[in-house]
């Protein structure tokens, strides 16, 4: 029982990281039709700015600076690189893949390729006994952070005018524009939100893994893409559900099967969903 509880909470913690990366990715793709391979860079920006700033200020403040860096990175990438390329899909893919590779290379050049130790604050240290299992507190930090982001995103989508524009734009972007709405502002906003959420994931991943490395962004991004496809493009609840499925599946299969089998099962789940519900779990 204790093992199952530990695996479940650890799986949910991993799911929280996937959700934080995938939610922004999903909104960006659903609204702007941009497959942003540079999304992992926002995560790395958050992780490294938090890590760097934690030498000077309290980790909580450093974490806020990391999120701000992710928001800024999202806005700059949208305004400078993506905006001139809307409706030019191939060029978008080339630019975002190139930016992703260049970003990793830049981080390696500045900070080195080896993982750096990431500080762990007192509120994320220690263990908590739950049903006989000793659960590291950082899992709960991840889950609570993702839950708060989920609730915030749902409130934004449900109760704000820009949320309404995003929901409508995911359905039919052209028609939103034909109703007199400058949909480009919404594009910038979802990039900012996605950048902030990914940066938060980067900083929390640093706390969770106790290290930060240039490759963290790309490794989490692969599973985030899978989560987006399984959940349904543009759907925040879909991303949340898919993240939980992927996180739990990975943990349980890796533990009870052989190491790495969890990743294979995730890909099998992706294939099954694509065959059964090609538009994802959240598609109506």
């Amino acid at each position: 029982m204790a093992t199952v509880v530990l695996l479940a909470v650890t799986g949910l913690g991993l799911a929280a990281l996937y959700f934080l990366v995938a939610s922004g990715l999903s909104l960006v793709f659903g609204l702007a039709d941009v497959l942003n391979f540079a999304h992992g860079l926002f995560l790395s920006a958050g992780a490294y700015v938090t890590w760097w700033a934690s030498s000077w200020v309290a980790l909580e403040v450093a974490l806020l600076l990391g999120v701000a860096a992710g928001v800024l990175a999202g806005v700059v990438v949208e305004l400078v690189l993506i905006r001139p390329l809307y409706s030019r899909t191939i060029e978008q893919v080339l630019v975002t893949v190139g930016l992703s590779l260049a970003g990793v290379a830049l981080l390696q050049a500045v900070f080195g390729a080896d993982p750096r130790p990431f500080p762990r604050p007192s509120w994320a240290a220690g263990v908590v006994p739950v049903l006989g299992a000793r659960i590291p507190v950082d899992r709960f930090v991840l889950i609570i952070a993702a839950a708060l982001v989920f609730l915030g995103l749902m409130a934004f989508l449900r109760y704000t005018r820009y949320g309404l524009i995003v929901r409508a734009g995911v359905e039919n972007r052209e028609m939103v524009s034909a109703l007199g709405i400058d949909v480009r502002k919404a594009f910038t906003l979802v990039f900012a939100i996605g950048g902030g959420a990914a940066a938060l994931a980067g900083a929390l991943a640093g706390i969770h893994f106790s290290t930060v490395s240039p490759a963290t962004g790309s490794s989490l991004l692969i599973f985030a893409f899978i989560v987006v496809v399984i959940g349904g493009m543009g759907s925040v609840p879909g991303s949340a559900l898919a993240a939980v499925l992927v996180g739990l599946l990975q943990q349980f299969v890796n533990y009870y099967g052989t190491s790495g089998a969890g990743d294979v099962c995730v890909v099998a789940l992706l294939a099954a969903v694509l065959l059964w519900r090609p538009k994802g779990l959240a598609a109506s």
Partner: peptide
């Protein structure tokens, strides 16, 4: 200009096939 700018100039557009937002 963009479609939204034309709407703001005073042109209303009712598209073929209604194009209401089904999820709203």
């Amino acid at each position: 200009g963009r479609p939204d700018q034309r709407v703001l100039a005073g042109i209303g557009y009712v598209p073929e096939d209604r194009c209401v937002f089904a999820g709203l």
